[in-house]
Design a protein around this nucleic acid. Structure first.
Length: 280
DNA sequence: TTGGCGTCCTGGAGGC
DNA sequence: TGCCTCCAGGACGCCA
């Protein structure tokens, strides 16, 4: 499940390969990818565009063209962007959803087993509003302060885990890094968000940033489908503190990690380090 | 306005 | 061995 660290790893891997290159041929093989716009129309619009920059906001990859138009890519659950120079074993892959031939003869292949991913071609004036309507604070920039996080949590009776998964509150955090951040902060995932004290919000901010930075440093977490742009696996899954570790001892206190359901998602936490009620 | 649930989608695991 | 059911989850729409 690509979250912020995985998307950032893909972005960093593709940036030197893509920037400055012209899209010579674009094949979109899955009509779902560009819904509601016809894929043939999007492909035709993309051909001839030259890449000016490759950015990221939350879990979105932002391909900026010299024309100032933007291709917004979301990998959702199982999307992969793979760079191939020469013969690729993916040539006959059943899960290829799009193939982009660059003007140096190399390919960028979009693969997506569950077909949730999306490609959207936006005009220059559409991007800012599109992202502003969907995304909250970017957690790794200086402006993501404890005050900003407290504002995102304020008035929310929902479990803090659910609020962290809401991209309109905090951009880029998904199920894995929400659990890891809450463990680092010592906060139970079912605590109502608005009940967190100021010191807990500060700890949560530090936990979010530390978990995401660890993920980037390890090139993301490969549980099943995620791969970097060169097809290799991330190693963050070897560093998980709680995610997917039910019944295994907590690294801090040795208490077995428990699994519950929060916000409709599998959720792992340490019942001792992350008490249901805050310490008096 | 808020929170919870269903939907989309497919591969893999487990049970029979 | 083959079939069936359940589970995984990001974003979005719908409903209470």
């Amino acid at each position: 499940m690509p979250e912020l660290p995985e998307v950032e790893t893909v972005r960093a891997g593709l940036e030197p390969r893509l920037v400055g290159r012209r899209l010579e041929r674009v094949e979109i093989l899955d009509p779902r990818l560009t819904r509601p716009v016809e894929p043939a129309g999007v492909a035709a619009e993309l051909e001839g565009e030259r890449v000016a920059a490759l950015g990221r906001r939350g879990k979105y990859l932002i391909v900026r063209f010299e024309s100032r138009r933007v291709l917004l890519i979301h990998l959702r659950m199982t999307g992969q962007l793979l760079y191939a120079n020469g013969d690729s074993p993916l040539a006959e892959d059943a899960h290829r959803r799009a193939v982009v031939r660059l003007d140096d003869g190399s390919d960028v292949i979009y693969r997506d087993v569950r077909r949730f991913g999306t490609w959207q071609l936006l005009e220059p004036d559409e991007l800012d509003q599109y992202l502003a309507e969907r995304l909250g604070g970017e957690p790794l920039i200086r402006a993501f302060t404890s005050k900003r996080l407290a504002e995102a949590l304020a008035g929310r009776r929902a479990p803090v885990k659910a609020v962290l998964l809401d991209q309109r509150r905090v951009a880029g955090v998904g199920n894995i890094y929400a659990d890891e951040a809450l463990w680092r902060a010592g906060i139970h995932p079912l605590r109502p968000a608005a009940e967190l004290e100021a010191d807990e919000v500060a700890a949560l901010r530090r936990g979010i940033r530390a978990a995401l930075r660890a993920g980037i440093a390890r090139r993301g977490a490969t549980l099943s489908n995620y791969r970097t742009s060169d097809g290799s696996r991330g190693t963050m899954q070897e560093e998980f503190k709680v995610y997917g570790r039910a019944c295994q001892p907590c690294e801090r206190c040795g208490t077995p990690v428990e699994k519950i359901r929060a916000a409709g998602r599998g959720t792992w936490y340490c019942p001792l380090c992350q008490p249901r009620s805050p310490a008096p």
